[in-house]
């Protein structure tokens, strides 16, 4: 077994043991903390695919995260009230239906946003993705049926056949399973010829075009795939917290996802997960100590951006002796 795979397996086993450790020490909040960090890690990893590998700086990624979450919330709302969405789609609380629905909805939104935004580049691309995310944000705020600014409470986590999803630990393991699967999926994707083309476009778009590759189409596919990943993460988050709110797609959330990617390491597979874990843990810990936790986070972030290239992953490699 390769060293990298061995390390992954060890990390996976350690993460799987978190609920037991939490029970032993009586720190039940650990499950919630690590679970959320894993989900944010998935969202950040999906952003990293277009940002780190594809060089597309999207400042509106939280929109897809939020859309995925809202699909779960809205389907539950209709299931609970016994009404039909748009007059013909019944609600449901089955995770096997809600998650694919969330992925598809986020993918459709990403197709729309990507098709229009990818016509521009540079600063304009950053700003137009932000603009679309803002539009979704305000759209969901104005939907009174789905709670407006307050969002939707999902009273019970979606059910999965054969599992007791009310149990916190079970839900955590489901989340961990999805995170691990998503990690492996991204690893395959990056190594595939598709992933190589995306990386090639980042390095030199004109050269890829000269090789006869329709760069716009490939970038759009990557953007859609990335949006679908964020949608899945959002859907899991709503299941995990049993709450969907417009805050999920606020522009500062998009900024936070970018921070996680950079903090962990741009264009690395594990980076976004490490970054998400580090930032989310730091925020949670600091928030317990002081209400002014944003100040140290801001200073730390500034120092990381100004002084380092490559984030925590590069730092780890330096310490480990630089094998790669």
């Amino acid at each position: 077994m390769k060293r990298e795979n061995l390390l992954l397996l060890v990390v996976f086993i350690l993460l799987a043991l978190v609920p037991f450790a939490a029970e032993l020490t009586g720190q039940s909040s650990w499950i919630k903390l690590v679970g959320q960090a894993l989900i944010y890690g998935m969202a950040a990893a999906s952003l990293n695919f277009i940002l780190g590998y594809g060089g597309m700086v999207s400042f509106g990624h939280a929109a897809f995260f939020g859309i995925g979450g809202y699909v779960v919330g809205m389907l539950y709302h209709h299931f609970d009230a016994g009404t039909l969405f748009l007059g013909f789609i019944p609600g449901t609380d089955q995770m096997l239906i809600t998650l694919p629905a969330a992925i598809v909805a986020a993918g459709l939104a990403a197709a729309l946003v990507g098709a229009l935004s990818l016509r521009t580049g540079g600063v304009q691309f950053i700003m137009i993705t932000l603009a679309f995310a803002q539009m979704f944000f305000f759209l969901f705020i104005s939907l009174k049926t789905y709670g407006g600014e307050d969002g939707i409470m999902v009273r019970r986590t979606n059910s999965l056949p054969g599992l007791n999803m009310k149990d916190k630990a079970t839900l955590y393991w489901v989340v961990l399973g999805f995170a691990a699967a998503y990690y492996l999926f991204l690893r395959r994707l990056v190594q595939s010829s598709f992933g190589q083309i995306i990386a090639g476009i980042r390095q030199n778009e004109r050269r890829m075009a000269a090789m006869g590759i329709s760069t716009y189409r490939y970038k759009l596919y990557a953007f859609i795939l990335s949006g679908m990943g964020a949608g899945l993460a959002g859907a899991l988050m709503v299941n995990f917290l049993r709450f969907a709110s417009p805050d999920m797609m606020h522009w500062s959330r998009s900024g936070e996802l970018m921070v996680m990617v950079i903090l962990g390491g741009v264009g690395t597979l594990a980076g976004p997960f490490i970054g998400a874990g580090a930032l989310f843990t730091l925020e949670t810990m600091l928030a317990r100590v002081t209400e002014h936790w944003m100040l140290p986070v801001g200073i730390l972030l500034l120092l990381v951006v100004l002084t380092s290239k490559g984030g925590l992953m590069a730092l780890a490699r330096k310490i480990m002796g630089g094998t790669k």
Binding site: G255, I262, H292, M294, G298, I299, L301, V305, L306
Partner: peptide, 27 residues
Amino acid sequence: RLYARDHLDQVLATFALILIFNQTTVL
């Protein structure tokens, strides 16, 4: 220090500045 960096670093550094300014003002 940011002039020579790419847009991503600029967005993040100034995002950090927002956090710092906002919290300092709260303090």
